[in-house]
Simulated scan of single mutants.
Amino acid sequence: MEELKQKLAEVLNLDEEMAQKGVDAVIEFLKDKLPENLHGLLDNLDSDDVAGNALDAVKGLFGAK
Rank of each mutant, 00 (worst) to 15 (best):
E3G: 12
V26T: 12
V11N: 06
K33G: 10
E10W: 05
V11Y: 01
K31M: 15
V11S: 07
N44Q: 07
F62P: 00
D32N: 12
E17G: 07
V50F: 14
L38C: 02
G60F: 04
L45T: 03
S47C: 14
A25T: 12
H39T: 02
S47M: 12
N53G: 13
L38D: 02
E36T: 03
L45R: 02
L42V: 03
L45M: 13
I27G: 02
D46Q: 10
D49G: 10
L12P: 01
D49P: 05
G60Q: 02
D43R: 00
A9S: 13
D32E: 06
P35L: 14
L42A: 06
D15I: 03
E2F: 10
P35H: 13
G52V: 04
L14P: 08
K7F: 13
K65E: 11
P35W: 07
E3A: 14
Q20E: 15
D15N: 14
Q20M: 12
L12E: 08
L61F: 02
E16W: 06
A25R: 05
A25C: 06
E16I: 06
E2N: 13
L34V: 00
V58A: 13
E28P: 07
Q6R: 13
V11E: 09
G22T: 01
L34W: 08
K31Q: 02
A64V: 12
I27P: 06
V26S: 00
M18Y: 09
L14M: 14
N44L: 04
D32I: 08
L8A: 05
Q6E: 14
A25Q: 10
L61P: 03
M18S: 11
L55P: 00
A51H: 11
K33V: 09
V26F: 14
A64Q: 09
D46W: 07
G52L: 06
D46I: 02
H39L: 05
K21Y: 08
F62N: 09
L12M: 11
E28W: 06
K59Q: 12
K33T: 00
D43G: 02
A19Q: 05
E36W: 08
L14W: 07
V23Y: 09
G52M: 08
D24I: 01
G63D: 09
D24A: 11
V11I: 10
G52F: 05
F29E: 15
E2H: 11
D56A: 15
A9R: 04
A19S: 10
L42D: 00
L12D: 09
D24C: 04
A57C: 01
F29N: 15
M18I: 03
D56G: 08
L55Q: 07
G40P: 02
V11A: 04
E3K: 14
K33C: 11
N37D: 15
N37V: 14
A51P: 04
D49F: 07
K65H: 09
K59R: 10
L38V: 01
D43A: 02
M1I: 13
S47Y: 08
D49C: 10
G40A: 07
N13K: 12
E10V: 08
N53M: 13
P35I: 07
Q20H: 02
E17K: 11
D49E: 13
D15E: 08
N13E: 12
D49I: 09
G22C: 01
